[in-house]
Design a protein around this nucleic acid. Structure first.
Length: 138
DNA sequence: AGGGTGACACAGG
DNA sequence: GCCTGTGCCACCC
């Protein structure tokens, strides 16, 4: 099967470890579910807060599709570490969005991480047509 | 049980 | 484009 993921498709999705599971267990069901889906976003791609909410709703209709704010809260709770790639979650208009709760310099750091992964950022913006991840489900 | 809060989304102007 | 206002939802008191 050929996936149109562009040139930076080398990475597979992150596999959650037993260590991660222990941390995940401290979070709400919703947040756990969101973070699990987030692990599917590979290096070189991004997703949006809204896309994550929508995707979870498709997989489990008990959650609403327009919960983007709740997804933001999930990212803030971050026990992600760089493995569960919360730096790959941006706003639906292509702007970088926030990082580390809005600490000074955090957005710059997020931008640098994305660029080092091959995502092109121009004036704080990312071309979602090019870099948006497409979720795959059975 | 009810009100407050965000790493958001969207439509207007 | 760049604000601004309004709607949103899961979570936390």
């Amino acid at each position: 099967m050929i996936l149109d993921w562009g040139p930076y498709t080398i990475n597979k999705m992150y596999k959650i470890t037993a260590e991660d599971e222990k941390k995940l267990a401290t979070l709400s069901r919703y947040q756990q579910a969101i973070l699990r889906i987030l692990t599917e976003v590979p290096k070189g791609k991004v997703t949006t807060y809204g896309d994550l909410a929508k995707e979870l709703s498709l997989r489990d209709p008990k959650w609403l599709p327009n919960a983007s704010r709740a997804v933001g809260t999930t990212m803030k709770n971050n026990l992600c570490g760089p493995q569960i790639p919360c730096h790959r979650v941006i706003k639906s208009d292509g702007n970088i969005g926030n990082f580390r709760g809005g600490e000074k310099g955090a957005v710059e750091e997020k931008t640098a991480m994305l660029q080092s992964e091959g995502v092109i950022v121009v004036k704080g913006k990312i071309d979602l047509k090019k870099f948006r991840h497409t979720f795959h489900r059975e």
